[in-house]
Design a binder for these strands. Sequence first.
DNA 1: TGCCAGGCGGGGT
DNA 2: ACCCCGCATGGC
Length: 318
Amino acid sequence: MSAEKLVYFDKLVFKKPKDFSFFLTASVYNFSFWFNGKRLLVPLEDAIIVLADLGSEIEARVYVSKNRRLEGVDGLGKIVEHVLGLVENLTEFYGIVAKDPLLSPSLETLYGMHIRASQPWIASVIGVCQQNASFRQGWKMFYNFIRVFGKRVSVEGIETYVPPSPSNINENSMDMLLDAGLGYRAKTVVALAKLFAGKQHLNGFDVGSEELEGELLSIRGVGEYTSRLALALSLRDYSKPPIDRWLRRIVAEVYKIDEKSVEREYTRVWGRWSALAALYTTVALDAEPLTKALERIRAGRLRPDPSKISPLTLWKHL
DNA sequence: TGCCAGGCGGGGT
DNA sequence: ACCCCGCATGGC
């Protein structure tokens, strides 16, 4: 099946904020079909935004499907600002990082890294893929999910994917979800698809974070970890940390506290940046499995290693 | 080969 | 409030 060629719609230019690294923001947790080391492609329903670093500015070229009408460019500007985190001021966050024994060594390396936002439905799928799986297995699952269900399109000579809309996935998708390697998580993804297809406002960046969290938690297979990760990866709401066994153990070790008090202590230290700190931690330790991550902490190797397949280099390998 | 992972829900105490 | 188990799959 050949890729649909998207048509040029419009161009926007943004001033690059001081604490913003285009390369790090484009690199982190990304795939080769959305970032090639130079151009960042942001998929958005039936559109692709091509982003290029112009030094003091960022250019956004918008491409859309032929049969799709886009609302005005004003709305698009807000969306790009949200997706890239151009409006996110990390001064306070870096103030805490500078004093943190685990994250301060990687401050220079990771300075300016913002997390790209995905639509709530996609962020929820990412969360489900991370359940009870290693970093590599989880991201491979999501990669397969996009390749199996996404729509293949081309822009500026690059072939890429637009993620599926929730209405594309239902009970009949089970076999393909299993082929993508989701295992028992497949049912949860079908339930999420049903939720988002039925309540479309939940899939916008302007949905209330408490409402989204409540709806996600009502789904069988979505718990505290997955819903919090989804809030972080879609709404930039970092106030509640997604704490899994990995982070719980690491935080207990570094802060020398009991595992039971990790959430209380982590939220006390990081406040509204808790989930971002959790994500930075995975990047600093290359998302290595727990035993290796603990070894690295003991050895004081707290900076990402560019030779590893990691959150920052995933796009070179998948 | 046979474990076991960056969860979760259900059933036990 | 806890504790414990099974669950699909891939990786080692």
